[in-house]
Design a protein around this nucleic acid. Sequence first.
RNA 1: GAGCCGUUAGCUCAGCUGGUUAGAGCAUCUGCCUUUUAAGCAGAGGGUCCCGGGUUCGAUCCCCGGACGGCUCACCA
Length: 502
Amino acid sequence: MSSEQRHAPTEDDLTATRRAKLAELRAQGWSYPNHFTPTKHAGELHAAFGETDGAQLDEAKHPATVAGRVVAKRAFGQASFVVVEDVTGRIQTYLRRDQLTPEEHALAKSLDLGDLIGVAGWVFRTRTGELSVHGTSVVLLAKCVHPLPEKWHGLTDVEIRYRKRYLDLIANGAESRPVFLSRSKILAGIRSFLVARDYVEVETPILQSIAGGAAARPFLTHHNTLDMELQLRIAPELFLKRLLVGGFERVFEIGRNFRNEGISTQHNPEFTMLEFYQAYATCDDLLPLVEEMIGGLALALHGTTKVKYGEHDIELGAGWTRLSLIDAAAAAAGCAPHDLRNEPKARAVAQQHGVPIPPGAGAGGIATALFEHFVEPTLIQPTFVTGFPAEVSPLARANDDDPFVVDRFELYVVGRELANGFSELNDPDDQRARFLKQLENRGQGDDEAHPMDEDYVHALEHGMPPAAGCGIGVDRLTMLLCNAQSIRDVVLFPLLRPAAKA
RNA sequence: GAGCCGUUAGCUCAGCUGGUUAGAGCAUCUGCCUUUUAAGCAGAGGGUCCCGGGUUCGAUCCCCGGACGGCUCACCA
């Protein structure tokens, strides 16, 4: 390739070199072998022989076959040290000419960082004391034709980490993999917690004709043969409650919700939510359940209910603070609680503090805006906020003594909403009226107002047992328990714009 | 959607006030090396300085526009 001639952007030289090696192997008949069975993981070998001295190992010559990715290679003329990484960790292999066929020796010399190989041999300890596998055969399992990120600094470009998560896992596996293992444990922990309490796991539609159950804008899609507009669900709530009508008494679903909104460190357009519903329970019954679940998950993951999140030390052991939304908002805004029940007065308070008033908001909506503005960011330790205005809770049951509010709570930790639960509204006429009120708000410009769902009201008209339900954002819970500052660090493949065409 | 910041070799990063041929380490290639530990030694190759305009004798650098990303804000969980 002449240097004065500006060649078209062809393949990178590093990749070309590796492809040439691959072509050579193929010419010799190699073709991505399918049958290879390792007998040991790296972690097993370290666990079994980590304390065994070299003389004993030489005596016993324990056989071992390992497989994994080449993550380091130190080659000499007639021998090489090749470090292989599998899901449990790393093990060094030692490949020398006098133990291999000529073809294997040539392969060992041509190995690139990133290749997947299998090595059979015996366990030994090198002169410098490192536990290794002395190879008697080596086979290439898959070729890596692209150069991998540098071994010392790893991959720091966050865009590539999210876009090509496999590279993040290869290059930064020690840091990024544990988060996803923890996420798996959290999901399993939630399931076993609820199943142990007689909850039934169910799956409800993601494709819905009216996406309801939350205040959010949906994604739109289309069914071709039915020629039908569909929306991706924004919450499973209304279907889970139809199941309560049908006779299930305790149900839960862990699933993806889709909300057509902005992206931030705390928002991914698709996110995982746990929702659970219990008949013959009230809102108050759920608080201890949530405490126990989240505290138990922390204990299972970390062995303690104290977790570190950024600068904060969070105590997730039971006994969380409880706070009334209206009282807290009034205290922060320096007015009397009853002022926030009166729309003109509430409006004046908000204007006095320069807090924007949502379109169509009445006293309840304004009180909530004040709460979110002043109080929410200050709730660092786990706090249950109760007494939400009915106006902002179209699916929750009004309080018997004070119909201005509903029997509802939200859980806040490190200034973020983590869970939302309430006694369910099972009065179909009240539900219809609330939906109509939401339609009014929609007319006034609130495009996240809840749509009318006659089918759901019709279900309620058959009688839904008194019940309470709760939703927990699994991604945010994982962030909290894994000390992750961005939701993209706990979602394997976060949504990104398509990469610019290079 | 708005504001601020960023984008230089495959990766991690330098690059002065605008100056001639844009550097380093790792990685790669060639040679030597049968117990290394970020192996070593000798040599070599590798760049659309994110893209498009503008200013200038001259732009990686200054100005304008755009793409992508990060952070903050707004909305939600």
